[in-house]
Write a protein that binds this DNA or RNA. Structure first.
Lengths: 337, 337
DNA sequence: ATTAATAATTTAAACGATTAAACCATTATA
DNA sequence: TATAATGGTTTAATCGTTTAAATTATTAAT
């Protein structure tokens, strides 16, 4: 069962391939194709159920209508949310998404980008892996259109769509303070990722601006290799202080998840024993006994903006787009009044 | 910044494109390329950082090393799990995955398949949308290699990798019976999807084989348009009986999620007030106050098998592979002893 | 009846790879 | 010395489109 090609259609109608191509690409008017001929061509295309070979088209047009997407880990809520948003917006623009997950490994990240570039995607949307600055710089040099989402490198000027993590963390911390909390802990990853540092910074500044003297024991760090253990000991630490913390701010939803599991396990009540605030929500939290107050990233918007930025970039060459979005605080019942 | 092409490399080395191609494709021996020449070519490729254009290669080879994946809804745990497994197995075989979500709409399902076929994917992995039999038959006629996963149409003979839903539901129901439950409810979608019917059937047969007379009120149906409401009224119904049910078997994890939310809300205790068994687990359940007993689909294995089946299909033409996998029961604490 | 203008169509060269077949040197064999 | 065998390389067609340029057919103008 050989695939039908343009030439077959042309032969069937008794015209040249050029005419068929013109008609199929809406250039019938412009190339003044006879209306009758056009009709016959369309009829044949319909009858034969001809489908243009996009590969051949891509080769000739030097354009694939494909966007490569690299996420950090498909298991993150962020990843599925953003993927969904991107896929849907891309489809609206007749683009297809090919994607992969770096699983937080720089090597996989680089490899994925190479695969995508070799497949001649028109542009890339990237959630950068830790320490992948060099790769980003290379990409810039090569002129491949790309936009970073979520994570940025402040020392490299790129197009990006990200959250204003400083603002979000500041607002969250201040929310806790306004609710009367005096000793607020922060549990965050030990990492070089800028966006997580910004969350630290927002937390620190909010404390300072509200005249709360930060104690270093409040800041508990979690290593990527030992998430579960470190979250647990983090909680143990902040509750074991002479003056135990009265609230904990988890810097990512994953951290919150592990934290809540432990709190359930140890029958530590939220919010009576400790208030909980999460950076980013998750439907995972739905089954916790009380709704979790959290800041919420506008995933839909981020995805949409990312797609539109890449497309703009593809169509208009260099542009400059650095967009920082604000997070909303979704009030649950996990913070004591 | 023009992209480097094969011809440029050839010119740079001072040989024909054929030689470069041979060397790059591991045919140096076979085509007896001079070892020195081969070295010079490889050196140039390295220096110039030449990357073959996969589009051109695909066109010539009539092979894209791409698999199209259509899932039912990216929000399902099943979808992310299977996607991850497929992507990883595909990468191992040097295939790339392009994918999309039909959002349970037959129209989107058809559209996605068309997009993928036009892009000349080598094969498809499909979670079929409801009532998409015609499309599947068309695909078969067209000779496109594809494999169904999760959902099958018993009236069409296709390659598939699926769960033995009958067995899984039977085992789950029997598990409840063995634990001493006498009045077991089933909450399932009202649907034409075969795999969900199989779950009904497993439930019915298990009851029958254990001499439990089924009461029709035990079987609560949920419409796709009204999931939340219907689950709630389903629970109300089975608990409001003169002889209330002592256990409920949710036929999908989504149904379980909504059910548990409602149970929390109404302070109905699991498992004291009612035992809960879920078809398929989800890390979403981690934050429920007790671990949910559930049957577990082997996602990793399904994904792996699906990829390998498509690849086999691509390489060897027609094959016959109908694989039914068994589910395991993961024992939690949501069923009364 | 020519020529000019316009309408309709075809030709053929790309796009960037692969590869059968042809070609040209050497060296081995008769 | 002629011929065959082998090693090494190039030529050119091909995959299925698009499209500038050439060509032909038709109508209008002189």
């Amino acid at each position: 069962m050989k695939k039908l090609v343009l030439k077959d259609v042309a032969k069937h109608v008794g015209v040249s391939t050029a005419l068929v191509s013109y008609v199929l690409n809406g250039q019938a008017e412009e190339k003044q194709v006879n209306k009758e001929t056009a009709k016959r061509i369309l009829k044949a295309v319909e009858e034969l159920n001809y489908r243009p070979n996009q590969i051949a088209k891509s080769l000739k047009m030097q354009k694939t209508f494909t966007i490569g997407l690299v996420v950090a880990d498909i298991n993150y809520r962020f990843s599925t949310g953003i993927t969904r948003a991107i896929e849907s917006e891309a489809k609206k623009n007749k683009y297809t998404v090919i994607y992969g997950s770096s699983n937080e490994s720089k090597e996989k990240f680089v490899e994925l980008i190479n695969v995508f570039v070799n497949r001649r995607v028109d542009g890339l949307i990237l959630v950068a892996a830790e320490n992948s600055q060099d790769q980003i710089k290379l990409l810039q040099k090569s002129g491949t259109p790309f936009v970073l989402i979520d994570r940025i490198f402040p020392e490299i000027k790129t197009n990006y769509i990200a959250l204003d993590n400083y603002q979000a963390a500041y607002a969250s911390t201040e929310y806790l303070i306004k609710k009367g909390h005096k000793r607020i802990a922060l549990i965050n990853y030990e990492t070089s990722l800028f966006h997580l540092h910004e969350r630290d910074r927002g937390y620190f500044e909010a404390l300072k601006d509200n005249n709360i003297t930060f104690k270093k024991e409040w800041h508990q760090k979690v290593s990527n290799e030992n998430v579960v253990k470190d979250v647990q000991s983090g909680i143990v630490n902040i509750l074991g202080l002479k003056q135990p913390c009265d609230a904990v701010f988890f810097a990512t939803d994953t951290l919150t998840l592990h934290g809540l599991k432990y709190l359930i396990d140890k029958k530590i009540n939220v919010p009576n024993d400790i208030s909980v605030l999460s950076f980013d929500g998750s439907d995972v939290f739905d089954l916790f006994y009380c709704p979790i107050t959290h800041s919420k990233q506008p995933l839909e918007e981020m995805g949409k903006l990312a797609v539109n930025t890449v497309i703009e970039l593809v169509n208009q060459g260099k542009i400059n787009k650095q967009i920082s979005l604000e997070a909303d605080i979704i009030v649950g019942k996990s913070c004591k009044e």
